[in-house]
Design a protein around this nucleic acid. Structure first.
Lengths: 143, 143
DNA sequence: ACCGGTTCTTGAATCATTCAAGAAAATGGG
DNA sequence: CCCATTTTCTTGAATGATTCAAGAACCGGT
């Protein structure tokens, strides 16, 4: 659990101005891991009153650029955001319901960064998405 | 290089009716690896005359479901399609220009399928995207 | 060649995200 | 503490990939 002033410090730490929408979004992302933009907008409004969706989009972009949140976007989903950053973890996504869970990288610190043949690319990140069925969806078959 | 009858055989092999749009799309995907939908529509029309964009969308979905093509969609890109399927290869994507290149899986046959903690998910595929700069973009810095 | 079911065409709708212009607010200096 | 400057937020509209819907055309088997 974080307090408002924690979020203030985070924002100042990356040279971002402290505004209510930013604190609200930061809080929403921490409280709702892997939430999509619409969910975040809803959570922000519930706690902090009216905030334009445009502001939330802007804030999410700013926070992502600053590294305070991480954006993930599995095929078929809209953008989702999470607060765990910088630890090179990955995700499992349920093909049926879209649920997302975190997966720690099995290999170590900055792993996965070596492609067999990089075609001359300078690689700075390896993103891994495991696809499958979540416990709920694999139990309940297609009705 | 494939001929029209090759594509016919592929379609029949997965119990799909052989139609001109399908052959055309199959050809376009083979000729333009990692092309987005719009490029495919263009290629199809250039070779086979008018085909509705809706038909191309339908065909791409059918071919993807049948396993004849694979759909990839790196964050920030529209859907892209490729003809290499079933060999568990991965991709490098250029952050600057969006170029995509294939990367063979370093580990072996059906690798990467083991997450450190799968949270009870039944995993059937691991998708890896390496992010970085392609040779062209890493040479020419931001103008 | 005909029939039934699939697939294509046409045209409109959806929805996440972005663009634009002006109003409001945040930080640093006086 | 107040002002000026710059950033950020609000409002409202636009974009663009993708999908929905209804009817026409076509594929494959009989």
């Amino acid at each position: 659990m974080h307090t408002t002033s924690d979020y203030e410090l985070m924002l100042r730490g990356v040279d971002l101005r402290v505004t209510r929408p930013r604190v609200a979004v930061l809080d929403a992302v921490h409280e709702h891991p892997h939430a999509d933009t619409d969910t975040i907008i809803g959570a922000v409004r519930e706690r902090f009153g009216d905030v334009s969706h445009q502001a939330v989009y802007d804030v999410l972009r700013a926070l992502t650029a600053a590294g305070l949140v991480r954006r993930i976007q599995p095929s078929g989903s809209t953008a989702r955001y999470e607060s765990r950053t910088g630890d090179n973890h990955h995700h499992v996504v349920c093909r049926t319901c879209g649920a997302v869970a975190d997966v720690d990288c099995a290999v170590g610190g900055t792993p996965c960064l070596t492609a067999s043949d990089d075609h001359g690319f300078t690689i700075d990140e390896a993103e891994v998405i495991y696809w499958g069925q979540c416990p709920d969806c694999s139990t309940a078959p297609i009705s």
